[in-house]
Amino acid sequence: MEDQMEKSIIERLRSAGCVFAEEEAQLLISEARTLDDLSTMVNLRITGTPLEYVLGWAEFCGIRIAVDPGVFVPRRRTEFLVHKAVALSTPGATVVDLCCGTGAVGVAIAKALGWIQLYAIDIDLTAVRCARRNVTSLGGLVYEGDLYEPLPAKLRGKVDILVANAPYVPTEAIKLLPQDARLHEPKVALDGGDDGLHIQRRVAKEASLWLAAGGHLLVETSKMQAPQTFEIFAQYGLIPQVTHFDELDSTIVIGTQPTPLA
């Protein structure tokens, strides 16, 4: 009976265009508390609701991250951003996660290092509420506001790691995104302006005010946009480098705050 039910769900998901129908069916069955719950969850999924919204969570860097409807869903490719940030950090580091969404990046960095001073910020109240569910249990603080605006002034010149998975999709390219993102995720988390670099420019412009000497700004971008992001970082006084990870098709630009000469 259970096998028949699972096969039926798989067929329905596959007919709706779910590429990983078998894996999704197993997740839905394992998360549903009752048959009525399962029916509701399957119906939501086959009508286009992102799987993470249906489940209420996403797996990111091996961690279960709470995801609320209307919040940007953390992507596998962004795990590379975490990996690079961790490699540049030490336990106890002061880390700021701009455009934090669910707070997944900051949480994953904190889990990897054991303990950090974590500050997460998003302009969207729905994201802030979701991030608080993920971040505060680790002792981190979450603020609602526009980029650096809500950060405590005491952090100026004291931040070791700035991470920003800022939106970098050009406005006109949003219509080309997969339906899950285009119809369900907030535009503010996707829209990077005319060339996709508007938010990155704003992040880089003020980064030097907040970074400690030798501190790092890390942003995710596209392979095509990386040369421009590199130039933006250099323009605002950071020492830039580009790194790419083929397996996740992930491109990160790192800007280092120069250390003053003695």
Rank of each mutant, 00 (worst) to 15 (best):
E6L: 11
E11W: 15
A16G: 06
C18R: 08
F20E: 13
A21D: 04
E22T: 04
E23R: 07
L27A: 11
L28E: 06
L35Q: 12
S39G: 15
E52Y: 15
L55M: 02
E59Y: 11
I63H: 01
V73E: 05
V82P: 00
K84R: 08
A87F: 01
T90G: 07
P91K: 08
C100I: 07
G101D: 11
V105N: 00
L113N: 00
V128N: 05
R129D: 08
R133K: 11
N134D: 06
Y143Q: 14
E144G: 14
L147D: 05
D160L: 04
Y168N: 07
V169F: 03
E172A: 11
Q179V: 13
R182V: 15
H184R: 03
K187Q: 10
L190H: 07
G193S: 13
L197K: 13
R201I: 07
V203H: 01
K205L: 07
A207R: 05
G214L: 13
L217Y: 04
T221Y: 07
A226G: 06
P227R: 05
P227Q: 04
Y236F: 11
H244T: 01
H244S: 02
H244F: 02
F245G: 04
D246K: 08
S250K: 02
V253D: 14
G255C: 15
P260I: 04
L261V: 09
